[in-house]
Design a protein around this nucleic acid. Structure first.
Lengths: 324, 324
DNA sequence: AATCATTTTTGTCTTGGACAATAATCACAG
DNA sequence: CTGTGATTATTGTCCAAGACAAAAATGATT
């Protein structure tokens, strides 16, 4: 009861409102079509209106609530307990459960007042739409702090802060895009200045993300840190299919494959992809994973090293060196 | 008839073979679950075996063929004609479908022997999996030729050559990714070295691509050329929704919005998106579009300037200057 | 308090049908 | 031969209701 194009993305969400089709909601929330339908059947939410063809049309409000639900699910809650709740109740749960979450992040923040105020200033530069100030602030901080602390203590927390501000509606999409773009420029410039490393004392590392993972900032942060450790890095950018990652690892004869995951994907998919890649990779090739994906740290993954925090990267390289 | 994790994937594809579940095939091939099932019903392919629960299990061979089919679909073929074919037939079609070239690209190539041989050398560096040689070759060429000719006469044709080699199966996905990544680094370095432009004599330009368009190389090429012309550039990276492009244009008070399109989308989608954006943008804001998307140049688009070739960019800036 | 067995919860896959937008084909006029 | 308009064919996505196995929660026993 539907058709091919059903063009709308989010453009018409404001003016006229036929509502968003289920495919768009899947993209926007990360919840599968099947899941959305079975939730409607079981919990009575979300209950979209139907268009002339009988297809579901979700309101912007429903999508917003689904976004909140998604975050609570990532925080460990169960669908049955929260899917029926209204916006206010969800928001309450979210703020209440906020401090429980990122314990591995908080240790770097709030211990340093100067960092906090710098971060705040940069956030304001984004909101002011001032790319020049943003770029200058980042660049200056990198020079002052040194690259490794810059990445670990400022860029990483700042990026999650921007992501959260966007999720809470305090930032628009284009403001988050501007931040990503400016930071990408700064990080790439730093990496380029490190490039002429003559004799690689560390492992040769292949960097990329798997299909459908298009968040590339984490990759750049890791690349910067690894180059500081004397690693030889080969980056493939984002969205490389599993089979091609394995193929590239063989072609470039790397010692390590490093993958970055954001939290937009279903845990089952992440695990399946990793298991798949692990078996396609030679046993002698190490597999390192990291990023804000909660699925990585719940259970230990056999044959895979999970890097929950960027500060754990340096020890991992040291450990690799020691094993040789 | 299935379950959550569905642990196996392709890991066992070599030794024992339960085959890949449908979700993995969707991720690896980009073909939706519904599409895979309806193809099986209509064309009898792919015909996966079933596991103990009755779920489909696709063989690695089938996935490989699906990948080829995907490429042919992107090249404009119809599923009904190619879904039943075997590996050899698909490969034949793929290599055969080369000469259907856009004529507007060929004019820059083949007029200069030195350029041709340089391009050939760089293509070989990609095939040799030698990122260092590739990067050095590009960097040296940029220094020798100067940035504008480098972008217009070498990078642009080289990029289309790589894309075609990939479409014909002469390059693997990861090889194309490596090219993109290395070139991105070179271009960004060039742009960064231009950044401290004091007084902008040219228009302020917002650069981005619309949703679902993730090809960012064209954006970087345009940004480099525009900065040479004294423009002030604000880039949002790729995949900005239409509404946010308009919002950003207002927030940053730009004179021009420049969009890049690759040829992966349907013409109707492109036209709809552009029309929508044109209405949301102030009339005083110019809208420039370019890229390898054939839909842009078939009919004239009202209120939009189409840049078929990068050499047309400089005149457009001059024209804008003159209008003030 | 920890280990094991049981029940509940939950996401994904199944089948067969349907539809609307796109593309291909055909008929007809200039 | 070249457009142009109408017709038919193709094709991706959505729907419904049912089913099942893994994960989480609960209860029982050491």
């Amino acid at each position: 009861m539907n058709s091919l194009s059903s063009s709308p993305t989010l453009g018409e969400s404001l003016s006229n409102s036929p509502g968003l089709p289920i495919a768009t909601v899947e993209r926007e929330t990360g919840l599968g079509k099947d899941t959305l339908r079975v939730w409607e059947r079981r919990y009575g939410f979300p209950k979209p209106v139907r268009d002339s063809a009988g297809d579901r049309r979700y309101s912007a409000t429903q999508v917003q609530q689904l976004r909140l639900i998604r975050r609570l699910l990532d925080a460990g809650m169960r669908p049955g307990k929260i899917v029926g709740l209204n916006h206010a109740q969800l928001q309450a749960l979210l703020t209440q459960h906020a401090p429980a979450l990122p314990e591995y992040l908080s240790k770097t923040i709030s211990t340093n007042r100067a960092l906090d105020s710098l971060q705040e200033a940069l956030l304001q530069a984004i909101g002011r739409h001032d790319p020049r100030a943003l770029r200058h602030g980042l660049s200056a901080a990198q020079m002052r702090m040194g690259l490794a602390p810059f990445v670990t203590d400022l860029v990483a927390p700042l990026t999650t802060a921007v992501g959260e501000a966007w999720a809470q509606g305090r930032f628009e999409v284009f403001e988050e895009h501007l931040y990503t773009e400016v930071l990408t420029g700064v990080l790439r410039q730093a990496i380029a200045s490190l490039t002429p490393q003559p004799a690689s004392q560390g492992p040769k590392v292949l960097l990329t993300t798997l299909s459908q993972e298009q968040h590339g900032l984490g990759l750049l942060m890791v690349e910067a840190l690894l180059m500081l450790e004397g690693c030889a890095c080969v980056s493939l950018g984002t969205q490389t299919p599993v089979a091609d990652v394995a193929q590239a690892a063989r072609a470039h004869q790397v010692d390590v494959v490093a993958l970055s995951f954001s939290n937009v994907h279903k845990a089952a998919m992440v695990h399946a992809g990793l298991r798949e890649l692990r078996t396609q990779l030679p046993a002698s090739t190490a597999l390192w994973v990291g990023g804000a994906c909660s699925a990585l740290y719940q259970r230990p993954l056999t044959g895979i090293s999970a890097v929950q925090h960027l500060s754990n990267l340096q020890p991992l390289v040291a450990q690799w060196r020691h094993a040789r």
